[in-house]
Design a protein around this nucleic acid. Structure first.
Lengths: 249, 249
DNA sequence: GCCGATTTGTCCGTATGTATC
DNA sequence: CGATACATACGGACAAATCGG
């Protein structure tokens, strides 16, 4: 599949914004102009722009135009955000990422696990603990629960590399969405051990739990990612939904 | 404006999902059926569904249908997410919210403030510190920087109630989007004082910084929200963007 | 494995409403 | 007021995936 037209336009505009072909705070060419440029319908242009809006790259104002509000990121710390694997983040940020599997077991969900993960009691699972390193520093401790039925052949070696690559490229599982919750929790002994933390320093971690679904609607993964706070950074762009709710904080 | 048709459909479907008119994991009526039900075009139905997808309520599968993957939230802790004011969150969660202004000053941005906030050096600003209470408990300490030029008449009383309500209802400023970054930071003395924290306990806070824009593309607010970790919870639904990036964590 | 019905995904063209200037 | 620009909505066409026979 040669990629959708709206996506090509989206990416093209995104690149132009990132390399500042459009100045900050100025208006992009109007939709009708873009229709000419890309030789497509207005709907297709609008769809591309909608993507930029949710990314926080532009804002649209009726009667005015589409304004570039993208500012290059400071890019100090390691950034998570959107949906991207640790491996891919590493590559994108030009760092050397590595994953160490510290626990690889199989188990059936008991009541407690079922309550925590959302899997039914009795479900056969892989339970892994993995540590992600960036430039040699331990940043993330992951507790992964995977549905065994969906990937019976999972091995330590695959887990060491990239489980998602295995799922997509080998098993042709399509990952669709991931419901995530971010909280802050106290450091545990296990965290301390694997993330080489100093308790005099931070005594908390950023914790991201996620329920991930494939295209059959099966929740095949529950993961708790425990991040070193000094390297955790989550970016987001919130767009106001007109009449529904006010906005403040 | 009587609200858009697609939005009415979106809200209707959302309600039906929430009160479990559609069973978890089952398919919603097909788009063509919904076209009949709502007496509208397929595009309009699709737009409503798209909203549910980004909310993580449903997933769509080509050739199959639209599957309900909504599960009622545990709803224990106070939830922030999307764009909603503290006041509105309080109301939605049926709690008693209150805001105390502990500092109300005006200043011009010096180099340091400019670097931190993104305002130009020399910009005239309001600088506020506000504490948000829920059921009598101090949960959030906010450092707000507001562009003075956009709301010259801001008072302590308004800040005590709701600045956003003032902006929208009185000044008719349209808030469009907010770029947010979440991190974890060490507790400071000011945090300790106003959030009544015990340093033996958590020594960190969840910190959300946000740059907020109006419909003129003006960044009129920079805010740093410092949350008690034990009451902080941020929800999110990440949707896989087909070909662009893999997904894992 | 193929075919056909169903369903979502992409794309187009057009018309009308509404906000900005 | 008119020109421009985005917002909403409709209708139609074809592609691609799923599923049952």
């Amino acid at each position: 599949m040669p990629a959708a037209k709206y996506d090509a336009i989206y990416r093209d505009l995104k690149n132009k914004i990132e390399d500042e072909s459009y100045e900050f705070q100025t208006l992009l060419p109007s939709e009708n102009q873009l229709v000419e440029v890309y030789g497509c319908s207005r709907n297709t242009v609008r769809r591309a722009i909608a993507g930029l809006v949710t990314d926080g790259y532009v804002q649209t104002v009726q009667g005015k135009g589409v304004r570039n509000i993208y500012r290059p990121v400071p890019q100090s710390s390691f950034t998570i955000g959107s949906i991207e694997s640790f491996r891919e983040s590493s590559i994108r940020n030009h760092r050397e990422g590595r994953t160490k599997v510290v626990l690889f077991t199989e188990l059936a969900a008991d009541r407690k696990i079922a309550r925590n993960t959302g899997f039914e009691p009795g479900t056969e699972l892989f339970y892994l603990q993995r540590v992600h390193f960036l430039n040699g520093k331990a940043l993330i401790l992951n507790h992964n629960y995977f549905l065994k039925s969906i990937m019976p052949g999972l091995t330590r070696e695959i887990a060491e590399r990239s489980i998602y690559e295995y799922l997509e490229k080998t098993l042709h599982v399509t990952i669709v969405n991931s419901q995530r919750v971010m909280t802050v929790e106290k450091v545990t002994e296990i965290d301390e051990k694997y993330l080489e933390l100093n308790l005099n320093d931070y005594n908390c971690l950023a914790v991201v739990t996620s329920h991930t679904f494939d295209s059959n609607g099966v929740m095949f993964e529950y993961t708790q990612s425990r991040h070193r706070p000094d390297y955790f950074r989550f970016q987001d762009n919130a767009v106001r939904r007109s009449s529904t709710g006010g906005m403040s904080v």
